[in-house]
Write a protein that binds this DNA or RNA. Structure first.
Ligand SMILES: [Zn+2]
Ligand SMILES: [Zn+2]
Ligand SMILES: [Zn+2]
Ligand SMILES: [Zn+2]
Lengths: 145, 145
DNA sequence: CGCATAAATGAGACTAGGTGTCAACACATG
DNA sequence: CATGTGTTGACACCTAGTCTCATTTATGCG
């Protein structure tokens, strides 16, 4: 299985492959980030790596998002949340109670997008789908009342 | 056909029905809002009704969102955009060029949501689907290069 | 109508989330 | 070693939004 350290190493490798330098602040940010499979905010990272500049952390996360290594998603109220990206196009099932994020790989909206294109004459450029759930373990600990 | 004034009147009526007072700032905010079928930001409303307090405008929009009369949606970068709600559950096709918002009533993701529920054991509580498009008129004026 | 009172307002402080600037620094390369 | 590009961090600044609290106002009741 993949450990958090492996994940951080992998991210570092990808950064390097992309022609980016592996600096101390980046290593720390990636290490902190890799330990949070449940999703994170940039401010949380800043608090976990206080000796690195806030702007640097934001720049690092933005870089990772642009490289497709991290996803920026949107909670129901619009608040942003980040998480490590799985490969390829996917959507997110976010638990409203514990905040865990499950990636949903199979995209079932292609048909809807085609319809929109046909009906409105518009060209679909992108889409965002977030599903807000009560995850299995949260259902177990706090059953439906 | 429905004019902007009709729209504002309708919103006022809905507010009143909900037990809310019809104050001058609310009337102005609704009037401004009704003139923007293409979607708006709260800051824009504030600029259009400068003699009403900023907090009041935010409170009014929040009220309308909670009453389901206005939708808060999310651009690709996460920036919020508001628009008048059509009836019932729907999604949004947002033009990246002109910012117009087309409501998409028929929801095609039910099947996907069912799958998520079955596969992960989680209970789907809500979802958000935004489609980013190049609308028909924007395609016409700035054709695909 | 007049009044009580709860709802609503507005000024302004505050927060989260994020970008832009710029001088200083770190490296790699010739 | 010189030079140039990538990166950093302090800090100012921005949008979006909430909170407080003293003051005002809409509305229902007598
Ligand atoms: Zn959960
Ligand atoms: Zn998709
Ligand atoms: Zn358009
Ligand atoms: Zn839907």
């Amino acid at each position: 299985m993949t450990t958090e350290t492996d994940t951080a190493e992998e991210l570092l490798r990808r950064l390097e492959d992309g022609g980016h330098r592996l600096t101390a602040p980046r290593r720390s940010a990636l290490a902190a980030l890799a330990q949070r499979p449940e999703g994170f905010t940039v401010e949380e990272l800043c608090r976990e790596v206080p000796w690195a500049g806030r702007a640097t952390i934001y720049r690092t996360v933005r870089l990772l998002v642009r490289m497709g290594l991290v996803c920026k998603l949107s909670m129901l109220d619009g608040k942003p949340l980040y998480n490590l990206a799985q490969a390829g196009h996917h959507h997110h099932a976010i638990c409203l109670t514990c905040g865990s994020v499950a990636d949903v790989s199979r995209c079932g909206v292609d048909h809807l997008l085609e319809n929109i294109q046909l009906l409105t004459g518009s060209q679909v450029m992108g889409h965002r789908l977030e599903v807000y759930v009560l995850c299995a373990s949260c259902r177990a600990t706090a059953p439906q009342r």
